[in-house]
């Protein structure tokens, strides 16, 4: 179990992680989600003692990371799969890890087989690895010591679809056996399928956390998307029922459930051509919650300054 409480990390005047608290339960996969620069990596680095926190603390299984003897046997860590010596072979990299942890060399072969790196690939130097191969090696390295807790920073990065599926099954199975998994991503749909719990972070602050259902319920507004043969009649009919109708795309967004819209159409004898649930879904919720933390304010390329230099107001 990972317990983060009141974690803050500042760099000069900049707060990278701002009073972050959450818990990762054993037997569950916890997804750590946030846009670029939100503070995910920094939080994970603090967990394993690579970065000291400005305040707050993290315990793993009730211990500070530095108090865990031979921590590789209890906590599997993957922060950056590329952070390995480019001149070492994959096998050598795993061998160094195994020797450090006091594991037999046979463990290296087991892990290589598990992440489907062939003997030939394992003997190549890391500089000649593809992104996905590095990622597989990094996952193998994290699992070497058969740890109870896994901390993985963007593990799916660079994996092909089959690799992502494989990793998802791996992590689910791992949690099913009682392990604790924390994995970060900036892609919701990548995490949604594997995580039981989600923690949303933006600009260093936790903006929401909970299981997928409770997070979905946060988006309480009902709305529907509807189009009709006679749009004008549709608007009249819906407004007569007291709903707000806003044009969107080909049709309209209505602040009513699909059942209410259907009933209104029936009463006013309107022929609908499309009627859909317009609820935002987790994706929109994610974007909304982290909206003020997004870099992209509006799509499109910013216009060049209209006036040349010197046109100060």
């Amino acid at each position: 179990m990972i317990e983060v409480s009141g974690l803050t990390r500042t760099y000069g005047g900049f707060t990278a992680v701002d009073d972050v608290s959450f818990t990762c339960e054993p037997g569950r996969v916890t997804g750590f989600l946030g846009p670029n620069g939100a503070g995910k990596t920094t939080t994970m680095r603090i967990m394993v003692g690579l970065t000291p926190p400005s305040s707050g603390r993290v315990t793993i299984g009730g211990h500070l990371y530095r108090d865990i003897p031979n921590p590789g046997r209890h906590v599997g860590v993957l922060l950056d799969a590329g952070a390995q010596h480019a001149g070492r072979s994959g096998r050598e990299i795993l061998t160094i890890g195994a020797r450090t942890m006091g594991l037999p060399d046979s463990r290296v072969d087991e892990m290589l087989a598990m992440v489907s790196l062939s003997d030939e690939e394992a003997s190549r130097r890391l500089r000649n690895y593809s992104l996905g191969m590095k990622q597989r090696l990094g996952i193998a390295h994290a699992l070497l010591g058969d740890p109870e807790v896994l901390i993985l920073d963007e593990p799916a990065n660079g994996l092909d679809p089959a690799g992502i599926r494989w990793m998802r099954d791996l992590l689910k199975g791992y949690a099913h056996r009682g392990g604790t998994v924390l994995l970060s991503s900036h892609l919701l749909n990548e995490v949604e399928l594997v995580a039981d719990e989600l923690i949303l972070i933006g600009r260093g602050k936790i903006v929401a956390q909970g299981d997928k259902k409770s997070l979905g319920a946060l988006d309480a507004q009902v709305s529907s998307l509807v189009t009709a043969l006679d749009p004008a009649a549709l608007v009249r009919g819906l407004e007569a029922e007291g709903f707000q109708v806003v044009p969107e795309g080909e049709g309209f967004r209505v602040n009513a459930s699909t059942a209410d819209v259907g009933r209104a159409a029936l009463e006013h004898l309107i022929v609908l051509t499309d009627l859909r649930d317009g609820a935002a879904g987790l994706e929109d919720l994610f974007l909304e919650l982290t909206a003020d933390t997004q870099r992209e304010v509006a799509p499109g390329v910013p216009a060049a300054p209209a006036a040349p230099e010197g046109a100060h107001r």
Partner: peptide, 10 residues
């Protein structure tokens, strides 16, 4: 489910 381990025995 395997028994949940909230603490790690070190």
């Amino acid at each position: 489910h395997a028994p949940e381990r909230r603490t790690i025995d070190i």
